[in-house]
Simulated scan of single mutants.
Amino acid sequence: MFELAKELKRDCIEIADWSLCKVLLMNDSQYPWFILVPKVEGARDIIDLTEQQQNQLQLESRQLQHLIREVFSPYKLNVAALGNVVEQLHIHHIARYQNDIAWPQPVWGAFPVKPYSNEQLLQLIEQFNLTE
């Protein structure tokens, strides 16, 4: 049975449940940072998904990227599946700006996390309107 990795549960807020993926928001208000997690038990790499699941992942990733562009108008959209720390397959979608605090370096561990306030979180979820 699929279960979200403990690190993702700890660091993220679940904001939507699409047909293949859970959509998470990294609880760091310094960057618009979303994560797609395919609800497939034991998946560590994209090739662990069936062809149909891989196609659905591409659709959902594209949908998320379009939403991020529409809402946040980033200079650059970083999309990556690393998995060196959290083995469970998850794909980061991060809106980057030339004036963000980590630019042009990667965001991972660059600065201490600044969690969203309840107000910021509600506003972001409303603005983002994450339905499938």
Rank of each mutant, 00 (worst) to 15 (best):
I35V: 15
M1K: 02
P104D: 06
Q63R: 06
Q88I: 11
Q63V: 10
W103E: 07
E41H: 03
Q105D: 08
Q30H: 09
N99L: 12
P104C: 07
L49S: 02
N27S: 10
G83L: 06
H90C: 12
A5R: 07
K114Q: 15
E51F: 03
F111T: 14
I101S: 14
M1T: 13
P104S: 08
Q65N: 07
K22A: 10
Q127C: 13
I46W: 00
H92G: 12
R96K: 02
A16M: 07
I46S: 07
S19N: 11
Q54G: 01
E132D: 14
A80C: 10
Y116D: 13
Q30G: 11
V107T: 01
Q30Y: 09
K76V: 02
P106H: 05
K114T: 11
P74G: 05
E70Q: 05
N27C: 07
N55L: 13
K6C: 08
N129D: 14
P112E: 04
I35E: 09
L36V: 12
Q52K: 09
D45Q: 14
E14G: 13
V40E: 04
I35G: 14
P112A: 01
H90V: 15
L20M: 02
E132F: 05
I15N: 04
E70D: 08
V113E: 07
L59T: 15
V37H: 15
E41Q: 11
T50L: 00
A16T: 10
V79F: 06
V40L: 02
K39Q: 13
H93M: 04
Y116V: 14
L89H: 10
F2V: 04
E70M: 05
C12Q: 01
W33L: 01
L36S: 12
I13Y: 00
L8H: 00
E87G: 05
L4S: 04
E41W: 00
F34L: 14
P38I: 08
E60C: 12
K114F: 15
W18V: 10
I35R: 08
R69S: 10
K22G: 08
L59P: 12
V40P: 13
R10D: 01
V40K: 06
E3S: 14
V71P: 02
E70N: 03
S117R: 13
L57W: 13
Q127I: 08
I47F: 07
I47R: 12
G83Y: 06
Q52E: 10
L122N: 04
D11M: 01
K39I: 07
F111P: 07
L89N: 10
N55I: 12
F34R: 08
I68P: 02
M26L: 13
Q53G: 00
L64K: 01
W108P: 01
K39Y: 12
A110V: 00
W33S: 04
N118L: 14
L64C: 09
R62M: 15
N84F: 02
S73H: 15
E3V: 15
P38D: 12
H66D: 05
P115A: 14
